[in-house]
Design a protein around this nucleic acid. Structure first.
Length: 837
RNA sequence: GCGGGUGUGGCGGAAUGGCAGACGCGCCAGACUUAGGAUCUGGUGUCUUCGGACGUGGAGGUUCAAGUCCUCUCACCCGCACCA
């Protein structure tokens, strides 16, 4: 009987389905483990082999934990609302729901053939009314808590997409996902007050078992900075003043000018007649530049307004400039400049020949701004103090004199929460004729998306939902009339709480049951890509904290441990004209790549898999050729789970051979005698169990597989696998290659799934060898190895070493100065030529 | 520029401060067979006077001992980027 993966894969996948092997257990006293994958957006492209890397990694852990006796929750679902589906629907003239169903069917089928141990009865789809009903419900909670509001705000309008984007989705003036240009526009939008939670989002990061890089990214994104707000009066303009924010109030005596952002509201009124032309042209020029151009230039520019500000601390008059290095959107849109101790101000002052006033000792301010610590000088009541003390004194002075106060600023802004799209959650909001807002009653949810044939914006620029006039026009029971909100929620909304719905996906009375929430939360292991480091993970933490404050969840944080799997990339080939070639059209010669049978030289790159680059490998094709277990093994054997890796299908033959070798140990081609159980192999088995167990605890599947390969190679060399080792090996293999493991298990007469069998234990006695080979060094150089009994003393080891021919040679005629000995580890002689008397 | 990370054979990668290169791919040789991309066995960092010498991006340092710790430096990757 040879290994036929088609048959084996199908047999056990059907078995797991039929027996509901991975059904989540109900409430019990056993320890629980919630392993969650970041659920996918079901795109029309289907999965490529890069997607399952994290899924396989988390599935190995889920299966391992089950075997260890944990109750495991391991669900999967679809983040199904979103723009690409809406666009595909328009293109095909179909409804987005139909496209979504088609895509989720593909994804589900693709995932099932990998043998992932999801509880498919908990599958959720964020675009289904019975799901988004509760997304709307949470929105009501946010609104009732005063965390959702409408505002006329400058938004990131993306003409190509016909919608607005959150700040986080825009970088360098383009949409990070597609590269489409984004422009600023003033629009009335829904906002969520995430800033109210900034401090808690920052502080609670400390207790999380997350990669430090992700925590660092979130800290930076929140961008807390402490300092002071200071009021400057404008000279010769009665009752006119502006405020600046600074983190260095201690340098106020060093202020030699002030700068307003070109967009600052005061610019118009304070500009002098002589400077008006220059100022207006500078402002106009600035506004014309895209955000991208503005952030990419390095040279400082600016214009004097002709007005002067009064430094509150000493009454000095300083010129007020405008410059685009001051951003309207951060702080107060104005700064006081202390060029001696701030690099940007120093550059600006150097360019426009503005004075430097040194107020902190220690630098050479003629050469560069000095930002280090030192004693204050030229600062009256601050003289002699170091920075920290001086800051405190200045803030005290400012508040006592009514011209400022301590303040904390955040980079984080409120979350722009509306989109002008069809395929998203409708807001449960009606605007009444008198202009007031009416929020739907909880019992009336969901506000279902109306059916629309045309998903484009209206001719007058309103969102698609404005086309659903019947749906939109509402008369309340009391006779009041109004119009429904036509914006929809952004895609992030559904993913902000899906991990909670998995606890209780069919509940139609509550979003989740309180007892189940207490049983399963928080998520013990959350696996996904780094691309969600600041968006999804920050938004979800924010919602979770709100739910916590409402008493709806019992943990402060949703995801206790986060693991980022590495990306899988693939080689792409293209010719001088930019045409891409498939790998099968390419051949390598002398380290270069050519179109097969021609001299057309190809440029090769490692890139993200994409259809247009002709470098996509699908799980379907690799499973067809090698089987699901080989795919699973290769996904995690390539290297550390957290590292990026390059996909090379040819290399799958290694793990496939391993499975076949293992298969022959259970189903030998020729009858073997067997019977004997060599002690060496017995010891190796226990060492292997130990190694695999430890590696799983540390999420190192690659080295665990390596250990099992060593064991299987050893048994193959012996010629058979002793009967008493057949169960432990199958059990160890089960999380990694579950289909063959089930087959082995069944062949051993077992009637129930190996997935629920107990994880094998190793005998601590058996992993310790009786005799140990230890390295011997002379002056730190390897000179051989000796075999000693375990736990041998220094003297024993030393005498064995000195008797060794080769080692003895390196010691002869030399004086041993020192011997370093670590029991069972190593022996080192430190020697030198003998002293001549 | 700032923050984080990574540099090890032909390739992917292993190594609690203690035998560098486990395991896998590829390659070489052999066995069985003989047209098979099957299986098994052995070999595979470089140089070598066969004693050994050198070797983890580069240069120093700490240590009996460094891929691992420290300092400097180079290259690449990721994130942020005038945040006052």
């Amino acid at each position: 009987m040879s290994y036929n993966h088609h048959q084996i894969d199908a047999k056990w996948q059907a078995y797991w389905d039929k027996h509901k092997t991975f059904k989540t257990p109900g409430l019990s006293d056993k320890p629980k483990y919630y392993v969650l994958d970041m659920f996918p957006y079901p795109s029309g492209q289907g999965l490529h082999v890069g997607h399952p890397k994290g899924y396989v990694g988390s599935d190995i852990i889920a299966r391992y934990k089950r075997m260890q006796g944990f109750d495991v929750l391991h669900p999967m679902g679809w983040d199904a609302f979103g723009l690409p589906t809406e666009r595909q629907a328009s293109k095909e003239n179909k409804h987005p729901a139909e496209i979504t169903r088609r895509n989720t069917d593909t994804f589900r089928q693709q995932l099932k053939q990998i043998g992932l141990s999801y509880d498919w009865d908990r599958e959720i789809d964020t675009s289904q009314p019975d799901y988004y009903k509760w997304t709307q419900w949470i929105f009501l909670k946010l609104y009732q808590k005063g965390l959702a509001y409408q505002a006329e705000v400058p938004v990131n309008w993306c003409p190509a997409l016909g919608t607005v984007l959150a700040n986080e989705e825009v970088k360098d003036g383009v949409y990070v996902e597609t590269g489409d240009v984004v422009e600023k526009r003033l629009m009335k939008q829904w906002m969520l007050k995430i800033t109210e939670y900034a401090d808690r989002l920052l502080e609670d990061l400390d207790g999380l078992d997350w990669p430090e890089s992700v925590k660092e990214m979130q800290r930076h994104w929140i961008g807390k900075s402490e300092g002071a707000r200071i009021r400057f009066a404008v000279a010769e303009h009665d009752n006119t003043h502006f405020e600046v924010f600074t983190t260095r109030p201690d340098t106020l005596f060093g202020c030699s000018y002030c700068v307003l952002a070109p967009e600052h509201p005061l610019v118009q009124s304070i500009t002098s007649a002589e400077q008006r032309e220059a100022v207006e042209s500078y402002v106009e020029n600035t506004l014309k530049q895209s955000e991208r151009e503005r952030t990419q230039k390095t040279e400082k520019t600016g214009v004097f307004t002709g007005a002067y500000a009064l430094n509150p601390v000493n009454g000095e008059e300083v010129p007020i400039w405008i410059a685009d290095y001051v951003l309207a959107s951060y702080g107060t849109g104005a700064v006081f400049a202390c060029p001696a101790h701030d690099e940007r101000d120093w550059e600006f002052a150097a360019k426009f020949d503005l004075p430097l006033i040194e107020v902190v000792e220690g630098g050479k301010i003629e050469e560069a701004a000095y930002t280090g610590d030192g004693k204050h000088i030229n600062s009256e009541f601050l003289n002699g103090m170091k920075i920290e003390a001086a800051k405190r004194h200045m803030i005290k002075w400012l508040s006592e004199n009514g011209c400022g106060e301590g303040e904390t600023q955040y980079r984080l802004r409120d979350w722009l929460f509306s989109r002008q799209r069809y395929w998203g959650e409708p807001f449960p909001v009606i605007e009444l004729e008198d202009g007031s807002l009416f929020l739907e009653e909880e019992g009336d949810l969901p506000v279902a998306l109306p059916h629309l044939d045309d998903l484009s914006p209206t001719p007058d620029g309103q969102p698609p939902l404005a086309r659903a006039t019947q749906w939109r026009e509402v008369t309340l029971p009391d006779g009041r009339k109004g119009l429904r909100e036509t914006n929809t929620m952004p895609q992030w909304a559904g993913s902000c709480w899906y991990y909670l719905r998995f606890l209780d996906p069919l509940n139609d009375k509550f979003p989740w049951d309180a007892a189940l929430e207490q049983r399963w939360m928080p998520v013990d292991l959350y696996v996904g890509g780094t691309e969600h480091a600041t968006l999804h993970l920050l938004y979800a933490r924010f919602w979770h904290k709100v739910l916590f404050d409402l008493g709806l969840v019992s943990s402060k944080e949703p995801f206790q441990k986060l693991f980022n799997q590495g990306k899988i990339q693939a080689r792409s080939y293209r010719d001088g004209r930019g045409k891409y070639y498939y790998p099968h059209e390419v051949e390598a010669r002398d380290g270069e790549y050519f179109v097969k049978g021609s001299d057309t030289l190809l440029e090769t790159r490692i890139e993200k898999m994409s259809k247009s680059k002709h470098n996509v490998v699908t799980p379907d094709e690799t499973i067809a050729e090698y089987g699901a277990d080989s795919l699973r093994l290769y996904e995690v054997f390539m290297g550390p789970l957290e590292d990026d890796a390059i996909w090379q299908t040819e290399n799958m033959s290694g793990v496939r051979r391993f499975l076949e070798r293992t298969w022959r140990l259970y189903f030998p081609e020729k009858p073997v005698k067997g019977g004997e159980t060599p002690l060496q192999l017995e010891r190796l088995l226990h060492k292997t169990i130990q190694k695999v167990t430890e590696d799983l605890e540390q999420m190192h599947p690659n080295t665990a597989i390596s250990a099992m390969m060593i064991f299987v190679n050893e048994a193959t060399r012996l010629g058979y696998l002793p009967d008493n080792m057949k169960k432990p090996l199958a059990l160890m293999l089960a999380p990694f290659a579950p289909h063959v493991a089930e087959e082995f298990w069944e062949s051993l007469g077992q009637k129930t799934s190996i997935a629920l069998a107990p994880w094998p234990a190793f005998d601590p006695e058996m992993v310790l060898d009786k005799n140990i080979e230890i390295p011997v060094q002379v002056n730190g150089k390897m000179r051989g190895t000796i075999e000693v009994r375990a736990g041998a003393s220094e003297n024993e080891a030393r005498s064995v070493a000195e008797d060794d021919e080769n080692i003895g040679k390196h010691l002869s005629g030399l004086e041993v100065v020192k011997v370093i000995f670590k029991t069972d580890r190593m022996l080192n002689f430190v020697v030198r030529p003998p002293k001549k008397d």
